[in-house]
C-alpha cells in the first residue's frame, strides 16, 4: 500500500499505457517501503515526458533544464549528503544532450540515484529518433528508417565506473521497486535504465515482454560477467548487473561539509591568515 504522503494529489497526465505511470508507482512504493521522510528526498527531473514526475511526487523537487538534471543533483548531494537525491531523466536527457554528465557522475561515484526513463524515442517532441532508438526504426526524423546504431547503455554505465548498474522494465513494478530500493540504499552512484514502452510513438511493449528476463544467479560483483550480460542482444536481462562498494564522492568532502555552517562566520582572523601569502 503506497502512502498518500508521496502523492501531490495531482492526477498524472501521460498517454494511456505510458510506462511513466508504472515508474511513478514503483518510486512511491520504494519510498514507502524504505519509510523515507518526503522532506529528506530531492527529486531532480529533466525535460521530456518523464519531467512531469516532479508534479506528482510529493518530495522536494527541482525540474531542471534539458539534459542538466544530473549536475543539479550533484550540486544538491554534495552540499547535503543526508538527502536522498533521485534523478529522473529520459533517454534524450541522459543519453543525448546530457550524456557527459551521466558518465562523469558515474566516474565520480556521486551518491545520486539516476533513473533513466528510456522509451527509446523522443516522445515529448512528438516522435523523433534518439540515441537508444534501434537501427531501422522509422520515426518522424528517420522516415526511411534509422541508420544509426543505438547506445548500449549498460555498457556505457559500466565503462564509466558506475558502482551500481541495473536495468528495469516499467511493466514489472514490483521488480522495479526492488531495484530502486537497492539503488537508494547503495553507498554511491546508482544507475537504473528503465525500459519503458511509449504507446504513442514507439510501442515496444509486446516485444519487450517477450525478450525481457530476470537476472538470477549472477555475481553482481563480477565486472566481466556484467560486461558479458550487457552484450546480450537476443534476450534482454533485467536486474542488477553490477554492484560494488566504493567511497562516494561526497564522502571525500566530509570535513568541508561539516564546516559549511561555520563558513558564514568567516572571521577576520581567518582572512588575515589567508592574506599572509600576498604580502
Amino acid at each position: 500500500m503506497v502512502e498518500k504522503v508521496f502523492d501531490t494529489g495531482r492526477r498524472p497526465q501521460w498517454c494511456p499505457g505510458c510506462g511513466n505511470y508504472s515508474i511513478l508507482a514503483a518510486v512511491k512504493a520504494a519510498f514507502t517501503d524504505l519509510a523515507l521522510d518526503p522532506s529528506e528526498i530531492v527529486a531532480v527531473a529533466g525535460i521530456g515526458c518523464h519531467g512531469r514526475m516532479t508534479e506528482y511526487l510529493n518530495v522536494n523537487a527541482f525540474h531542471a533544464i534539458h539534459g542538466r538534471a544530473i549536475p543539479v543533483a550533484v550540486g544538491v548531494k554534495t552540499v547535503n549528503p543526508n538527502l536522498t537525491v533521485i534523478v529522473h531523466t529520459g533517454d534524450g536527457d541522459a543519453y543525448s544532450i546530457g550524456l557527459s554528465h551521466l558518465l562523469h557522475a558515474a566516474r565520480r561515484n556521486v551518491g545520486i540515484k539516476v533513473i533513466v526513463h528510456n522509451n527509446m524515442v523522443f516522445a515529448l517532441t512528438t516522435g523523433q529518433a534518439g540515441p537508444t532508438t534501434p537501427k531501422g526504426v522509422k520515426t518522424r526524423s528517420t522516415p526511411a528508417g534509422n541508420y544509426e546504431e543505438p547506445f548500449n547503455t549498460i555498457l556505457l554505465a559500466l565503462a564509466s565506473g558506475a558502482t551500481f548498474v541495473a536495468r528495469g522494465f516499467s511493466d514489472d513494478v514490483q521488480h522495479l521497486k526492488e531495484l530502486i530500493k537497492l539503488a537508494i540504499k547503495h553507498r554511491g552512484f546508482a544507475f537504473i535504465d528503465v525500459l519503458q514502452p511509449c504507446p504513442t510513438f514507439y510501442d515496444l511493449r509486446q516485444i519487450l515482454k517477450q525478450k525481457v528476463y530476470k537476472l538470477e544467479k549472477h555475481d553482481v560483483t563480477d565486472f566481466k560477467a556484467a560486461l558479458e550480460l550487457a552484450l546480450e542482444s537476443e534476450r534482454i536481462p533485467v536486474g542488477v548487473f553490477y554492484h560494488v562498494e566504493k567511497t562516494a564522492y561526497e564522502e571525500n568532502l566530509g570535513s568541508a561539509i561539516k564546516r559549511l555552517s561555520s563558513v558564514k562566520e568567516f572571521s577576520k582572523i581567518r582572512l588575515s591568515k589567508l592574506l599572509a601569502r600576498f604580502s
Binding site: A64, V72, G75, V76, T78, V79, N80, L83
Partner: peptide, 10 residues
C-alpha cells in the same frame, strides 16, 4: 548547473 543545485540545497 552544479552551482544551481548547490544553491538550491543552501
Amino acid at each position: 548547473n552544479m552551482a544551481i543545485g548547490a544553491a538550491f540545497a543552501g
